[in-house]
């Protein structure tokens, strides 16, 4: 039979260990903001706010090839494309590029664009001053819209990186008028 003192000790050890377990469960969740923070600091993605540009010195001695790409993730049938595939720019130079969204359907929807970069570590040096990815975009039926993106390549970009890809994946978040009116129009045509 365990004595009373050892029972007390056991209970204290129990408390400590349960505390560690709960702490680690919390830590699992803490990894989420932590991961995002790390990603933001390293610039892998910063979605919602414009970057601040500190150094506006244009470095004429270097040229960077900027590639643009867009992916449309939707079931509706709209598409977003960059109007230019690539541009040669100097670090520090203000760059403007346009992405064009075409919605040929009778559907209204909201979409969110997520930027990503290749190579990944170049992300922190692409400073976006204006971007349609900062907010959700509401697109009307049969609308075509041009989204300007304004950015600066930070002159701190490592010397061995000479090609940077800026890619957007645009996700359909909420679809307003959907299946019903599409089916209705189909029925009309069939009859």
């Amino acid at each position: 039979m365990a004595s009373d003192t050892s029972k007390l000790e056991n209970r204290q050890t129990l408390k400590k260990l349960v505390f560690i377990a709960i702490l680690m469960f919390g830590f699992g969740y803490a990894l989420v903001p932590l991961y995002k923070k790390i990603c933001e600091v390293t610039g892998v993605y910063s979605l919602t706010k414009p970057d601040e540009v500190v150094n506006t010195q244009v470095d004429e001695s270097r040229s960077i090839v900027l590639e643009f790409d867009a992916n449309s993730r939707n079931e509706t049938g709209w598409e977003i494309i960059p109007l230019e595939n690539r541009k040669t720019v100097h670090p520090g130079e203000l760059v403007q590029v346009t992405f064009k969204l075409t919605n040929p359907t009778a559907t209204t929807f909201e979409a969110q664009a997520i930027p990503s970069y290749g190579p990944k570590e170049a992300g922190q040096y692409v400073k976006k001053l204006e971007c349609f990815c900062f907010t959700q975009q509401k697109i009307n039926a049969n609308e075509t819209r041009d989204f300007p993106v304004v950015l600066v390549i930070d002159p701190e970009l490592p010397k061995d990186v000479t090609t940077v890809t800026l890619s957007y994946t645009m996700f359909e978040i909420e679809v307003k008028s959907t299946t019903e009116n599409r089916q209705a129009s189909l029925r009309e045509r069939q009859s």
Binding site: D69, R73, I114, S116, Y117, G118, P119, K120, T165, S167, T169, F171
Partner: peptide, 9 residues
Amino acid sequence: DAIPGFIRD
């Protein structure tokens, strides 16, 4: 790896 929503190179 090819990851939905992001590009890798």
